[in-house]
Write a protein that binds this DNA or RNA. Structure first.
Lengths: 228, 228
DNA sequence: CTAGTTCTCGTACCATGTACGAGAATAGGG
DNA sequence: CCCTATTCTCGTACATGGTACGAGAACTAG
């Protein structure tokens, strides 16, 4: 899977013309993953959604994993990159918020991203944009790249967590019982006295779960305040 | 997969005694994953390593995914939790370094962790320890939990990236050609002029890759400096 | 129209998770 | 000491998924 063959689409010249484009294949796959999750993203399923035979996909993509990489870069290309304003902290926060929206729209993205270093054109574009945003910070180039990695990693990590929470609920048929079981388990664990500080924290916080948006903003502020 | 049945091992009373313990099964699975990667972690492979029939594993574990959760919590239990010194920033940094070592020793961990909210006893213990470490910071309880999530997320994200880099090299037979292809691709992409800031950054940094440990320390310092 | 080229996709194979059930091993009661 | 209930063992079998292969279809250049 060298990057050169992965990211360049072969141009058609002679022979039978392809019935689809690689973009269409990737877009269809993204649709499937959005609607039914990563586990439903099988070659057969994508082919059906595209209205083609399963093996035809291999004309556009060398293997399933390559399709995933293309999907990742494709959706990253959806991210809006607003022009830098000069306030790099605000710009970086806006960048992070856009990323979070992206990942919320494509909940499979954080998982797909894990353990992968994708360097597609759109990923490079996003990186380039972040570097531009960070120009006024006076940070050296390498530190800017690291700041980008830090923010992106935080967003992926955090949204991945948010999504996992949602999915755990959505996967079960008896939500009430699931929540109850969870609460019972935690109460028993904490009640055992093995986690005194956790017990203290839970007692102090009360039971109401924190607002997701506010939590993200709070943590994002921490990340950004550490930079520069 | 409710937590109550996942984390509590059934005690044996009547009937044929089990030939193994759940811990042994999990430890064997960890060994397989360490040595051959997550993709080699099949029920058959683990059973072979354990010297049992494949289906016998299901006596100890309800499904493959449950085995993975147990593995995660088991290796998290390996982490050394040094007593807090009062210098919470230093303690938190030490915590992060331990986590990084852990994940380097079990390179499958960052990937396995993605999109999962595991709350096993050892995970809770680590969380409890982090809360204790953060006590002198004066942060409110909720903020302490978020700080823990932030640091853990950063380490997982970063090590996941480090590991991906390693694996990309290790997976190919012709390393030289792979590196060359990568370099060619990047040079072509950046040379196209589509990524001016990236081009500038690469020119400024030179070609020598930064030291992995130093990079981690630098980024960790950023994360921690943002807290409190 | 022909030769060369490229795409299409049915068939087939292998790997994997796991349901099922027959048989084996044990503990406690008679 | 045997009998019965109970629990573990694991061979067999099936469904699902990635993908190699190759015959045929559809096109272009000459």
């Amino acid at each position: 899977m060298d990057p050169e063959t992965l990211w360049s689409e072969r141009r058609h010249h002679r022979g039978r013309p392809p019935a689809h484009t690689r973009e269409a294949v990737v877009a269809t796959a993204v649709g499937v993953a959005d609607a039914e999750g990563l586990s439903a993203l099988t070659m057969r399923r994508v082919a059906t959604a595209l209205g083609s035979g399963t093996m035809s996909l291999y004309t556009y993509v060398s293997e399933r994993d390559a399709l995933l990489e293309l999907m990742i870069d494709a959706v990253i290309g959806e991210q809006r990159l607003s022009a830098p304003t000069g306030d790099w902290r605000a710009d970086l926060a806006a960048f992070a918020r856009e990323q979070r929206m992206l990942m919320t729209r494509h909940p499979w993205l954080p998982v797909a991203l894990a353990g992968r270093r994708t360097l597609g054109p759109n990923t490079l574009k996003a990186l380039d944009h972040a570097l531009a945003v960070l120009e006024p910070s006076g940070m050296p180039p390498r530190a800017r790249t690291e700041a980008f990695a830090l923010v992106s990693g935080f967003v992926a990590s955090h949204v991945g967590y948010e999504v996992a929470q949602q999915r755990a609920l959505g996967r079960t048929d008896d939500v009430r019982e699931f929540v109850a079981s969870n609460a019972r388990y935690l109460a028993a664990a904490v009640g055992s006295g093995a986690y005194p500080h956790l017990a203290e924290a839970m007692a102090a916080d009360g039971a109401e779960p924190p607002d997701a948006d506010e939590t993200f903003e709070r943590m994002l502020a921490l990340v950004i305040s550490g930079l520069g």
